[in-house]
């Protein structure tokens, strides 16, 4: 269809929000527009000469569009662009900055599970998985994406209120020689030295060592 009269203000703050390489394009409605604005989205692989329309995000009224599938190759970089329509008018295409999934994604905290014996606690850490198209698809751990991935683990003795820090690369940490009948709270964070990435800290998981027999 012929291009409409494009004097509508542009969508604002067009950017990728990425967590564990689930890459979702977000934007804000054009200034001064109420309801009824529709959008369409296109994306391009940096260095490749064509823009590709995203059919599922054509004439949508929401202000996000999941492009995880289209940007799943993290050896490439991407641009995305949004155009707004309202009452026969349209805006210009408004682009993101260049998006590098490898360095621009945020990482969720690791999953933590703990078990205890009389005098020790065992901490099991699991790095989040990279986003995948469907549950049937083979899982890829972020450990495979970032081989230098490490865990910073904090262990808090609830009785003495003392906190210890561990930095481990493998996913199991056993802390022996603890006090029986004492509660320890564990929290962990992922640290990737380069490209420099940190996750937030996981929820705190508390467990008590068994009482002295």
């Amino acid at each position: 269809s012929g291009e409409l009269y494009c004097s509508l203000p542009n969508p604002r703050n067009v950017h990728f929000e990425s967590v564990n390489m689930k890459n979702v394009l977000h934007w804000s409605a054009p200034e001064g527009t109420g309801d009824g604005v529709l959008y369409k989205v296109k994306y391009s692989v940096y260095g490749v000469g064509k823009w590709i329309r995203k059919p599922e995000c054509r004439n949508i009224n929401r202000t996000w569009c999941d492009l995880s599938n289209e940007t799943s190759d993290y050896e490439e970089q991407y641009y995305a662009s949004v155009k707004a329509f309202l009452n026969g008018m349209c805006s210009d295409w408004t682009e993101t900055t260049r998006f590098n999934p490898l360095t621009d994604t945020k990482i969720d905290p690791p999953m933590v599970s703990v078990s205890s014996t009389e005098k020790s606690i065992s901490i099991f850490l699991t790095a989040p998985e990279k986003w995948k198209r469907s549950p049937e698809e083979e899982s890829v751990s972020l450990l495979q994406v970032y081989p230098g991935l490490q865990y910073n683990v904090s262990v808090l003795n609830k009785k003495t209120k003392k906190r210890w820090w561990f930095s481990v690369s493998n996913n199991t940490l056993v802390v022996p020689w603890l006090e029986p009948g004492t509660t320890y709270c564990v929290s962990a964070q992922i640290h990737v030295p380069t490209p420099l990435l940190h996750s937030g800290f996981s929820k705190e998981y508390c467990i008590a060592t068994l009482k002295d027999k």
């Binding site: 910073n152 906190r163 210890w164 820090w165 561990f166 022996p176 640290h191 030295p193």
Partner: peptide, 14 residues
Amino acid sequence: VVKEVSSVVHLDTM
């Protein structure tokens, strides 16, 4: 090797 100096770092058991 201690890379990140956060606070009290655990070395070992005695």
